[in-house]
């Protein structure tokens, strides 16, 4: 256990502390001198920087576009596959495969689908609609990336919710049916409350992962057009590794951390709170 604890210290805890120190420093790895302590200047500077503010808004919009759709769709699918029938295993696997393939790799496929002769424009052409520059238009770029992410997140959410559904005792349904409860009432009063813990987990995890979107942005849009898909994580990458501003990039990372923590806590509180009312 000691080596593992030591390892986790070196690779997970020390970087956090080091990052915190960096966020209060001015540091470029190209300069000969080490980090200079400059106090909260980085934080003040990024909060007055419209690019950073914009990236937070983009990240928030992105999460809001992906999260509700993928959770509701995954719930519907989980309910549908929660019955034995021929080929159910095949259906479950098919729906799960996007989850196991790397984000970078699937983004490549979607890059083709959105390209000028890609699948989406071919479908438009079939209906005689002029082709779209999905990823080059400020209005469609972020929704296009979000659509890909919805598709990608569907499978794992479905599997988690399915596990949740199967942990609900059958007897509850039997008892309610005897009392004459209809399908909707069964769903509303037994399935949803029984699913709550796993639903909370799914939503929190989705918020944490989707708000860190990077590879899909890198591949599909490179943050463009005009910053309309520059998520905070993407901005941090460019700030640190293209402009070598390690200090302010670290400050951005901690602000993002705070936002993610707040958003997921808020979601958990909100969902668990409703249970008691």
């Amino acid at each position: 256990m000691l080596p593992a604890a030591l390892y986790v210290c070196i690779f997970h805890l020390i970087p956090v502390v080091y990052g915190l120190v960096l966020s209060f420093s001015d540091y470029s790895p190209l300069s000969r001198s080490g980090p200079d302590f400059i106090g909260p200047e980085n934080y003040l500077q990024i909060f007055s920087d419209p690019t950073f503010g914009n990236s937070l808004i983009v990240t928030g919009k992105y999460v809001l576009m992906v999260l509700p759709v993928t959770v509701v769709l995954a719930l519907v699918l989980a309910v549908l596959v929660n019955r034995p029938f021929r080929g159910v295993g095949l259906v479950r696997s098919a729906l799960y495969i996007p989850h196991i393939v790397a984000l970078t790799a699937v983004s490549m496929i979607w890059l083709w689908m959105y390209s000028s002769h890609g699948l989406f424009n071919e479908i438009l052409a079939f209906f005689q609609i002029p082709e779209q520059n999905w990823l080059l238009d400020q209005d469609t770029a972020l929704p296009a990336v979000a659509a890909m992410r919805i598709w990608k997140a569907l499978g794992s959410n479905m599997v988690l919710l399915l596990a949740g559904l199967q942990s609900i005792p059958r007897e509850l349904y039997e008892a309610a049916r005897i009392d004459g409860a209809g399908k909707w009432n069964l769903f509303r009063h037994i399935t949803l409350p029984g699913l709550k813990p796993i639903l909370v987990y799914v939503v929190a995890m989705d918020i944490i992962f989707i708000s860190q979107g990077f590879a899909e942005i890198f591949v599909l849009t490179g943050g463009g057009p005009l910053g309309s898909t520059t998520t905070t994580n993407y901005l941090i990458y460019t700030e640190a590794f293209q402009y070598n501003r390690m200090g302010s990039a670290s400050a951005m990372a901690f602000v993002l951390f705070a936002f993610i923590a707040a958003a997921s806590l808020l979601a958990v509180r909100g969902m668990l709170g409703r249970k008691t009312s």
Binding site: I14, P29, F214, I236, A249
Partner: peptide
């Protein structure tokens, strides 16, 4: 306590540790 500290690290965004890890590797 050690165990929970360890698990808490999984919730830290990648971007927080990315830059320090890069500088440490360097």
């Amino acid at each position: 306590a050690v165990f929970f500290a360890l698990i808490a690290t999984t919730a830290i965004p990648v971007s927080v540790t990315l830059i320090p890890l890069f500088l440490m590797t360097k």
